[in-house]
């Protein structure tokens, strides 16, 4: 009798753990999904422009993240942090594009370095789509940047370098779009696929930047003037 009771309790215990496991699995599907974008970015193979560029990464750029609360739609929420990868990517791309690149951390840096212009990237929008939303078997990510080139003297007038793009008196101000996608793959999680799509979008941003930089009218005239004088 005791043995039978013990056996039934074992079954109940196993049943509970099974139920707990199943519930955990179901709930994990509803939990927020976090992606800290991580990838390796190759150095571009391009002719270097003979210019010294200061690069200013604002705090909002360095800490950029996309937050999509899907709870109201009954879907998983997403948090995609791109800031660290953005800094890593642009810090690989820009030294290959320009002869000399310095990173502006403070107003004093603007006095200490002789730069031809200061480049300030900011992220206007990031959107993503997963197969659940689109019925297409690809994960996609779009990014829209606002890129600015400003005279160092203009920035020296600012009280702080953590400035909004709208407050910068830039001589060149243009937008750049980027797109990355990755197909669904067996045993690949949503998080891995969105990370890969983000890495592809960053690579695409670099490709778009390199092929369009000299064609932006305000950049083109600045390049002509600056390179002529040097």
């Amino acid at each position: 009798m005791v043995e039978r009771l013990w056996d039934s309790m074992t079954i109940v215990r196993n049943y509970k753990s099974l139920l707990f496991g199943l519930l955990s699995l179901i709930l994990s599907g509803c939990a927020a999904k976090e992606v800290v974008v991580d990838g390796s970015f190759p150095e571009p193979v391009i002719p270097q422009l003979p210019l010294t560029i200061g690069v200013l990464y604002t705090d909002s750029f360095k800490n950029h993240e996309l937050v999509d609360d899907g709870s109201a739609r009954g879907e998983a929420s997403w948090r995609v942090s791109t800031g660290v990868a953005q800094v890593e990517f642009w810090s690989t791309l820009l030294p290959a594009a320009f002869n000399n690149v310095v990173y502006i951390e403070s107003i004093e840096d603007l006095n200490n370095y002789q730069v031809d212009a200061v480049f300030i990237p900011s992220i206007v929008d990031v959107q993503y789509a997963i197969p659940l939303y689109t019925n297409v078997k690809v994960y996609e990510l779009w990014m829209r940047y606002r890129l600015q080139l400003a005279e160092p003297e203009v920035l020296m007038e600012q009280a702080s370098l953590d400035i909004a793009a709208d407050d910068i008196q830039a001589f060149a101000d243009w937008t750049l779009s980027a797109y990355g996608k990755t197909p669904t793959a067996f045993m690949q999680s949503d998080v891995d696929a969105v990370n890969l799509a983000a890495v592809m979008a960053l690579r695409d941003a670099g490709a778009n930047f390199i092929t369009s930089f000299g064609r932006v009218p305000s950049v083109n005239s600045w390049l002509a003037t600056t390179m002529e004088s040097e």
Partner: peptide, 12 residues
């Protein structure tokens, strides 16, 4: 593709 970045990306 990496050694010739960005010339063999989908865009380029």
């Amino acid at each position: 593709v990496d050694s010739l970045y960005p010339w063999f990306e989908p865009r380029t």
